[in-house]
Amino acid sequence: MNDESRNHPFRDSGQDLVAADKCPDTLQTRAPAYRLAFADQDFLTREDLRPVRLQLELLKPQLIMDERGIETTIVLFGGARIPAPEHRDQAKSKALADLSPYYDEARRFAKIMTERSLGSYGRKGVIVTGGGPGVMEAGNRGAADAGGHSIGLNIVLPHEQAPNAYVSPDLCFNFHYFAIRKMHFLMRAEAIVVFPGGFGTLDEMFEALTLIQTHRMKPVPFLLFGKSWWESVVNWSQLADAGVISPEDLDLFRMVETAEEAISVIDGWKKPC
């Protein structure tokens, strides 16, 4: 117990857990109704408690990152299935194997940005990824190459998603709700970089663009790696020509090919008036 809790007029909840464990084993103390509410998993996972769980998922990473002094992040989105170059022969298709250079670019970008972050003692420009394999692993790996820490925002899924070995363990979070996870991606973002990926990457990219477009989020450098990829996946000009977005919405992002080009855009970026 810390000094603050010793001086608090109410008992520490941890003390109550210890006391509850020492209670006599009776029908009454074994009954679910007798469990302390905050220690009752069956109670906390009831449908009625969803608002509480949403709040807890928002609050836990927030408090931990605040305690670590993390002020701003560099968000890195990208495909979980893109292999590292040394594993490209294990890819399920040649097309997927051909995307492996993006792993290297993500790793180099994260390394350079983390080296810069160390100048603020790891408080600013911290790399944050989804914490999984593929491009996400590359981002966390690049941060580890630089000797810095990085954040992983994992989520419980039936397949694919488990923390990669390069996420800083004390900054490795797990989520149930996609919405809260997305909030933590963007709450501290000073730049967003997006590599080729599937539905998850597209979802994250378009939600972030929508928030900036609608002024619900401050404009930040927004970079898409791989012009040929993105122009083949999304007909950007058709969106503007059809009038479903404004022509100036195409200025919300830039396409780049290399880590150095991305960093140059970030360094030269000026916040719109």
Rank of each mutant, 00 (worst) to 15 (best):
Q161K: 04
P158A: 06
S150W: 06
G152V: 01
A110G: 08
A179T: 14
I82R: 08
H149Q: 14
L54V: 06
Q55D: 12
G69Y: 09
Y166H: 09
V156K: 13
L96M: 15
G122W: 02
Q90T: 15
Q62P: 01
A144R: 10
A80E: 01
L63Y: 09
T73S: 09
Y121M: 13
Y102E: 02
S168Y: 12
F178M: 12
R108I: 02
A80M: 03
A138R: 03
Q55Y: 14
F109S: 01
R181S: 01
R53P: 06
V128L: 09
P85W: 05
L153M: 10
I74M: 13
K92F: 04
I82P: 06
F178Y: 14
K111H: 07
F175T: 11
L118R: 12
Y177R: 12
G147T: 11
H87M: 09
Q90V: 09
M113Y: 04
L59D: 05
I82Q: 03
S150F: 11
M113T: 13
V167A: 02
A91L: 05
A165D: 15
I112H: 03
G132Q: 00
F77H: 11
G147Y: 04
I151T: 12
P169H: 11
F173A: 02
T129H: 06
S120G: 07
N154Q: 09
T114S: 03
G134Y: 03
A143D: 05
G125S: 07
G130Q: 05
F109L: 14
R81H: 04
K124N: 06
R181E: 13
V156D: 13
Q55M: 15
T72M: 05
L56A: 14
D145K: 01
E160K: 14
G78P: 13
G134H: 07
G148A: 00
R123H: 13
D89W: 06
Y177N: 12
G139V: 01
A162E: 14
G134E: 01
G147A: 09
T73N: 05
P83C: 08
E67S: 12
S93D: 04
Q62K: 14
E105T: 15
H159W: 13
P158I: 03
I155R: 02
G131H: 03
A143V: 08
I64G: 07
P158D: 04
L171H: 14
V75N: 04
G152L: 02
Y177F: 15
F178N: 11
G152W: 00
L63T: 13
L76T: 13
E86P: 11
A162F: 13
F173L: 09
D98T: 07
L56Q: 15
I151Q: 10
G78L: 08
H176F: 14
V128N: 03
P61V: 02
G122P: 07
R53A: 02
A106I: 00
M136E: 01
E71A: 10
R68H: 15
K60R: 15
A143Y: 05
I155E: 06
R116T: 05
V135K: 05
E160V: 12
P51G: 07
T73H: 11
G125Y: 02
